[in-house]
């Protein structure tokens, strides 16, 4: 009997939902040939440790926003280019396009990782202490970002100071004004009840977070062929089932935010459009710096273009 440890850093969000549906689907097919154990909320260690864990086989499965998987393979960056997708539906149409989805599954095999789930997570917003209603309002703000250039460079482009602070420092620093804001998805902001600390969120349309569930390929190959197929199918079924759940979860989180006195601001349409165009060109420059990643970015753009033309 095999144990499949599924790790993630979050809880009660779309990633956790994916794990639960996957477990249900897989156990329905294979019975107790595999025991799926879900470890949400960083129970198996900090994010880098979980990422290395799945790469080296101490953890069988790990689901995470692609930005945390880039140390394992820079190719994960292509899904993180700001301004890439116009809507969650477009994102879903692209990553769940049957041919492209097959490609995603095997895209990281040379790094010993197989993708068994690719899901829409949430849009990236900016949370701020003071309202941000124009692009100029972001000038000079100290904004917590990930250390990724795909977050740092766009923030610098609008004149903000990107501050890659560890998560444990964010709350006290936001409270004291040591930082003025942070980039995050709304489900995270409401889960941590950030409306008790800062009230303002601006919908930047910055990027849509894609989460991917990777499994250790060596472990996957050690399973019987029918189990392998069951894992693949359970992943496909789970990602189809959780997409509407994820979209609704974002809407629900937005409601929770405003119900608790939080504000959601929009940028003027023309400013937003110009900003996103700039972000996208900055992002493209980052991901095309390295040939293998550039090639994947081109491929992704091709699928995206085909979807847009079909509509």
């Amino acid at each position: 009997q095999t144990v499949m440890k599924m790790a993630s850093a979050t809880i009660n969000d779309v990633q956790h939902e994916f794990q639960k549906v996957f477990k249900r689907e897989l156990e329905a097919t294979v019975g107790d040939a595999i025991t799926v154990e879900i470890y949400p909320a960083s129970q198996l260690g900090p994010i880098p440790q979980m990422a290395e864990g799945v790469a080296f086989g101490t953890i069988e499965s790990f689901i995470s926003p692609t930005s945390f998987l880039t140390p394992l393979d820079p190719k994960f960056q292509v899904f993180d280019v700001p301004g890439l997708f116009a809507s969650p539906d477009e994102l879903s149409a692209v990553i769940h396009d049957p041919d492209y989805r097959d490609h995603i599954e095997t895209m990281f095999l040379d790094r010993g990782l197989r993708v068994i789930g690719a899901i829409y997570n949430s849009p990236v917003l900016i949370l701020t202490r003071k309202p941000v209603e124009t692009v100029a309002d972001m000038k000079g703000l100290k904004v917590r970002t990930f250390a990724s250039p795909l977050q740092v460079l766009p923030m610098e482009a609008v004149g903000a100071i990107a501050t890659p602070l560890p998560l444990s420092e964010v709350v006290p620093q936001l409270q004291s004004g040591g930082i003025d804001g942070m980039l995050a998805g709304m489900p995270i902001l409401t889960a941590f009840k950030f409306y008790d600390i800062a009230k303002n969120v601006t919908d930047l349309d910055f990027s849509f977070i894609v989460s991917m569930n990777v499994v250790n390929e060596q472990w996957f190959q050690s399973q019987a062929p029918e189990i392998q197929e069951a894992i693949r199918q359970a992943g496909r079924a789970a990602e189809a089932e959780v997409f509407p759940w994820g979209v609704e979860n974002v809407a629900r989180a937005n409601g929770v935010w405003t119900d608790n006195g939080g504000m959601i601001h929009q940028l003027p349409a023309d400013e937003l459009k110009a900003m996103l165009a700039e972000f996208e060109s900055i992002g493209a420059e980052v991901v095309t710096a390295e040939p293998a990643t550039a090639e994947e970015y081109e491929r992704l753009q091709g699928v995206l273009k085909a979807k847009r033309e079909a509509n």
């Binding site: 000079g140 100290k142 740092v152 100071i161 990107a162 501050t163 890659p164 560890p166 040591g178």
Partner: peptide, 12 residues
């Protein structure tokens, strides 16, 4: 960070 609004990236 506080005085000049710049970061020494990767200090953490």
């Amino acid at each position: 960070r506080y005085l000049f609004g710049t970061q020494m990236r990767g200090t953490d």
